[in-house]
Design a protein around this nucleic acid. Sequence first.
DNA 1: GAGCGTATATTTACGCCGTAAGAATCGTCA
DNA 2: TGACGATTCTTACGGCGTAAATATACGCTC
Lengths: 216, 216
Amino acid sequence: MAAKRTRGVRAGLTRDQVLDAALALADREGLAGLTMRRLGAELGVEAMTLYHYVPNKTALVDGLVERIFTTAYSIGGTWREALSSYAERLRSTLLEHPAVLPVIVRPVVTQATLDAVEEMLRLLVDAGFPLGRALDSLNALTLFVIGHTSAEVAIGPDSSPEVDPDRHPLMVAAVRSGAGADDYDRFRYAVAAMLTGFDELSTGGDGRRDGTRPLH
Amino acid sequence: MAAKRTRGVRAGLTRDQVLDAALALADREGLAGLTMRRLGAELGVEAMTLYHYVPNKTALVDGLVERIFTTAYSIGGTWREALSSYAERLRSTLLEHPAVLPVIVRPVVTQATLDAVEEMLRLLVDAGFPLGRALDSLNALTLFVIGHTSAEVAIGPDSSPEVDPDRHPLMVAAVRSGAGADDYDRFRYAVAAMLTGFDELSTGGDGRRDGTRPLH
DNA sequence: GAGCGTATATTTACGCCGTAAGAATCGTCA
DNA sequence: TGACGATTCTTACGGCGTAAATATACGCTC
């Protein structure tokens, strides 16, 4: 396909193209499959060439994390709707790139995301949240979504060991009834619980004056 | 100290000793510093010797995760107290071994932890939680703790970029006021919010004496 | 045009890594 | 004693991230 490269012959790459290819490669082959040599091959270029667009591999992975977050923010509606849909959007974005999850440890705050954060803070403050609690709430919600989605991805069905029904009757009953089988249902329940808790603790329940209901 | 090893001269290791040393090494040097060669050196043994106690490096890391979880469970008191202190214990255990956090994606359910889980479920069910929601609540709380603690560890102070006070006044005000600076405070706020939300959504506020129909 | 600096790519090489294969030594039991 | 299994070391292989040096091509000034 591509003519063989020789020194100095431009490949016409950009940092964005490198990141795109890196994300695609990680999605396809897993995080361990993302190596500089393979990424280079993917782009028709030697590994060392990539170091002109990225200082080192750590920075490349950081770039992936940032990219994922900048596509996840969303706003609009009441504060409950905004936070709820933000949580769902973040979850689905993360699920699209499960390979990157292990290295996502915190929301990377970039210029691109600040606008959305600012608007969410505005919604919360207008609803009666003290400013500090508004920030805390946003933070906690994000961290929960990351944790939950990580667990969703980490396993398909269930890998629990054998359980003694006499010693652990509730465990057995819960598993038998299929409880916890639906990740998305569990996710929505937990998000609703967090939002309800935020409301109660930070506005004394005022936030629901507009008639918004916690779930469904 | 230790005389030089020769072939066949026993070092008297056990799997537990290997895991102990691995955890200590990871805590001291970071996850990337945990290599088979270095771990071997730590134990006065060649790298390949470790493969008699552990099938491969992945299994070794899995062993670390399991070990951390089995020491984190705790129970007692009301359901709120139990879940709250469980969250705190898990957090502090994770903080003691921050290097392992990136590979903790899910609570490893082992025989050792089942008793504690069963008792927590009992507390929740007695308080009026539908069984499925009890399990969901426990799960959500665990995942939140993992996510939150990961973020705590991932950063010391703050590395936010420069923020334009005109575009993002709330952001600036929040940071200036020192909001979100205290990780532990933020953690407790979020846990309290979750518990309040669980209560509201799963028992109707304070124990299902009114027969409120729970979700599900 | 000619000449030259700068950006872009490659080549080569070094020291790590996980681990497969096989040889060496030990304790134990017949 | 001799055989055997358990334990350890030695050697080796392919792959990794990346430092250093080198080669090519484009865009600028004259």
